[in-house]
Design a protein around this nucleic acid. Structure first.
Lengths: 156, 156
DNA sequence: CCATATAGTCAATCAGGTTGTCTATCATGT
DNA sequence: ACATGATAGACAACCTGATTGACTATATGG
């Protein structure tokens, strides 16, 4: 099948590779005290960043509505990764900030991703891995990381 | 950021590359008479294959419950990509088969993916692209393509 | 021939997303 | 100073896709 339709393999492998990294990340995170963290939480927390964000800003970054971003913040808040504070300069704004627990998850994620990358470097060779990263950079746009993957994938 | 956390970039680029391919596929499919096809439909139709499947089997292949698989078949049936027939040897089973319209979508998808791959080959060079594919093969498992991406990504 | 396993369906529930609406608060221009 | 318009957040209604649990119909095997 892949001989007569060589183009089919690429997207599958890309998705599979992504999933493997994410699944292994969360298996390891679970071992390190973050069993409730779901794939998209990591993305959202990174988007929130160390300085915090509002629902509107988060929605723009993630490419979803402010309501959806607000609901996601609700979830993260309920699980303890995020807390809401009010902006003293603009009482309308409620800034979502990472809690120490959230920062811990983010820091651990970064380390685990580095470890996973190192494993790939071991399997492929550092040179080949750098080439792979460079090539991916070449075919993907910079900036703009749309994270509306769940809804994007399904629908109709 | 990518200097102190080099491992963060890889998963993002993989996802982004996957999304680009899928988005361009569906933009082109829409131009070619399949405007209602959603990303996951292609995956499901490929899982159904030319010989057809039942909801239970499909659920196993996709890693979702038989009910979810049944609903997905309902959707595909409603849009005309799939039709249900009964198995004469086992009247419990209802086999979902691709309609000619569904086969057309699948064939066009294959051609479009080939074109997209050719574009990447043009941008990266055929050699580099083959190296990329080989490397992805090396770090991803064969067989077992779990396609439960929508639910997998979100949840909690 | 009955007991068990399997295929499919129905119903209730949940997560996440969307749009629309509403209120409170800021920011600006006259 | 104030009226106007823009923005932030919350609430409600609705859609899709997935889950579990319960139920029916049909095979299958002891």
């Amino acid at each position: 099948m892949s001989s007569d339709a060589p183009g089919f393999e690429l997207p599958l492998r890309l998705l599979l590779a992504f999933r493997m990294l994410i699944d292994e990340l969360h298996a390891e995170l679970a071992r390190q005290g973050h069993p409730d963290l779901r794939p998209m939480h990591g993305f959202v927390m990174q988007a929130i960043g160390p300085r915090g964000t509002t629902a509107v800003e988060l929605g723009r970054m993630l490419g979803v509505s402010k309501q959806a971003a607000g609901k996601t913040i609700d979830t993260l808040e309920r699980v303890g990764y995020v807390e809401r504070t009010t902006d003293s300069h603009d009482t309308r704004r409620k800034i979502a900030r990472l809690t120490p627990y959230g920062m811990d998850a983010l820091n651990r994620s970064a380390r685990i991703f580095d470890d996973l990358r190192a494993r790939w470097a071991h399997e492929l060779g550092e040179e080949r891995l750098q080439a792979l990263e460079a090539d991916l950079r070449k075919v993907t746009p910079d900036g703009l990381w749309r994270l509306d993957t769940p809804g994007w994938f399904g629908s109709l």
